[in-house]
Simulated assay, not measured.
Amino acid sequence: MSKRITPFASRYCSTLDRLKEAIRRKRSGLLRRGVVLQHHNATPHSANLTQQWLQRYGWEILPPSAHSPDLAHSDFHLFGPFKRHLGGMAFET
């Protein structure tokens, strides 16, 4: 099996299909302006099948942040509630 072919790539493309449909239903203007996606270099993300999918729909890929390599992209939804919870608090240490 080639390094760039993975059974998980088709699963990831299915996930992108569902994401595209959700964007179409909820925020269709984003699809017309273009989607910018940030993911890392996991095998399903860099597989030829995934790259072809992204090229077909014209989605732009941002490189992962070099400043926080230990943060998972799936955790970014936590920052807003966390900031609101800690807002106005003072810490001595």
Rank of each mutant, 00 (worst) to 15 (best):
L37D: 13
H45K: 03
L54R: 01
R24Q: 14
S65L: 06
L54H: 03
T93Y: 05
C13E: 10
K83M: 09
P7V: 01
R4S: 12
L49W: 01
L16H: 09
N48I: 09
R4G: 02
P63G: 06
S65R: 10
M89I: 06
K83R: 12
E60A: 13
P69Y: 12
K26S: 13
P64V: 03
S14A: 12
G80Y: 11
L54Y: 02
L71V: 09
E92R: 03
L37N: 10
L71T: 04
F76Y: 15
R11I: 14
R33N: 13
H77I: 15
G88Y: 05
A47W: 01
G88S: 03
Q51H: 02
P7Q: 02
I61G: 00
Y57H: 15
H45F: 03
S10W: 01
V35K: 03
F8G: 00
L71R: 13
H73C: 08
Q52W: 05
Q38R: 15
C13R: 07
G34N: 08
G29L: 02
S14V: 00
V36A: 06
K3F: 02
H85F: 13
S2E: 13
L30F: 04
Y57D: 09
K26I: 06
Y57T: 03
G88K: 02
V36H: 03
H85M: 11
L49S: 07
R18Y: 10
N48G: 05
L30K: 13
I23S: 10
L37T: 08
A22Q: 13
G34T: 11
F8S: 01
V35Q: 04
M1R: 13
L71A: 08
H40V: 02
F91E: 06
Y57C: 04
